[in-house]
Simulated assay, not measured.
Amino acid sequence: MAEQTNAIKGRGAAANPEGRFETIRHHAEDDGWQQAVLDEDAPRPRTEVTEECARSVITHNDSPDIYFSQAMNPYRGCEHGCIYCFARPTHSYLNLSPGLDFETKLRAKSNFAEVLRADLAKPSYVVSPINIGSNTDPYQPIEKRWRLTRAALEVLAECHHPCTIVTKNALVERDLDILAPMARDRLVQVFVSVNSLDNHLAAKLEPRASAPHRRVKTIRTLAEAGVPVGVLVAPIIPALNDRDMEAVIEQAAEAGASCAGYTVLRLPFELKALFREWLTLHAPQRADHVMSLVQQMNKGRDYDSNFATRMRGQGVFAELLRRRFEIACRRYHLGRARELVLDTSRFVPPRKLSPQGELF
């Protein structure tokens, strides 16, 4: 498989390296028998979606630095193509690349709502808020066609089950007819991720996500509809987008956000090389400085997986970010991202679907 050497418009990654579980490496060479295809002449990779039948859709975690214990993701891979996405390495479990494959070869769990209904109907199920979008964005562009997130929300609304949503796509506004009634019953909270106000930078970092100003507008739309909404300034990349932290918090607060959170850049597994390549292509003059600061926050390494520090980093620069964030939140009267308590007392297990229908 040939590796791309130039940036690809509309895509975050420029290469398709093999995942860490692959035993064979592919490398293209021009043997002189035919003219090599130039990168700029190569066709742009198209998005391919494959249906997948899920056996279970609710996952559980006990990580001390994550505020929710249950999560679900309708899709594997994400068309947004955010180069910093910590979920990229999960594509290796599918024998696909964390690079271009992650944003072009997607899996849609076509039976998502049906399996969710069955999971919630189990006698052993214990209700607690479910996060939608912990791994990949539930409102990525293919949701327009597949509508799996909406189908899941319909099930949750039917049985009064609380949930939280994390997204960076304005498509979430489409489901206000479900979210607004759920919000009145304290069953939902939405977090919109905005890590920069620079459209040019966002177009390279998050090529197929909604533009930053559009996400701020989404916060306003949700808040005006009565849906509790917070802003996530995530991830903060030192010497690249950290300068916008206070401005993002100010604009989000003015738009109606009630709380805020942040994380720093995380580079697990293959993501280290992918991000370094992105810096070489898009920010070559500051690449060394960015990585130097990243390493200062990770005990001299590109990434430190310690639960106590992986989300916020450590050291002088990490402490500076923490203080800046806290001061900005106080100034604009924003609470912490996990402060809202959703109502779990209304939950009623869904009825199992029957081919005979319902008599009452």
Rank of each mutant, 00 (worst) to 15 (best):
R117N: 14
P350C: 12
C82A: 04
P43L: 12
K144C: 06
C163T: 10
I132P: 05
V231D: 00
L232S: 12
E224P: 01
C159P: 08
P138S: 09
R351N: 13
V115N: 11
A318L: 05
P238L: 08
S56P: 00
D302F: 04
R266E: 06
D31I: 13
G315V: 01
K122M: 15
P98M: 07
M245G: 06
G230M: 03
R44M: 06
A253S: 15
L106A: 11
R215A: 04
P45L: 09
P17S: 05
E52A: 15
S305Q: 05
I83M: 13
P141E: 03
A283K: 13
E158G: 10
A225M: 11
R243Y: 07
T90Q: 07
L96T: 01
S63Y: 03
R323L: 13
A273H: 11
G313R: 06
A2M: 13
T104H: 15
Q189M: 13
P350L: 11
P98L: 03
Y262V: 01
G10M: 10
R107Q: 14
N131W: 02
Q296E: 12
D242I: 02
S292R: 07
L187W: 09
Y332E: 05
R147E: 10
V216C: 10
A273K: 11
L187Y: 10
S63K: 06
A337I: 14
A15L: 01
A253C: 01
I165Y: 01
P268N: 03
L171N: 05
L100A: 04
R11P: 02
D343W: 04
P350A: 12
D244L: 05
L274C: 00
A151Y: 00
R215N: 00
R208T: 07
A211T: 14
T167P: 03
A255G: 06
D41P: 02
L279P: 01
R11Y: 08
A170T: 15
M311Y: 00
E18M: 08
V216H: 07
A28R: 15
S110G: 08
L334Y: 08
K9L: 14
W278C: 04
A234M: 11
A170K: 13
A318F: 03
V37A: 13
E339K: 13
L187R: 06
Y332L: 03
H27K: 12
A54N: 06
D288K: 09
G32L: 12
H161C: 07
Q35P: 00
K105D: 10
A209M: 07
I130W: 08
D304G: 00
E246P: 03
A337F: 14
Q314E: 10
A2Y: 14
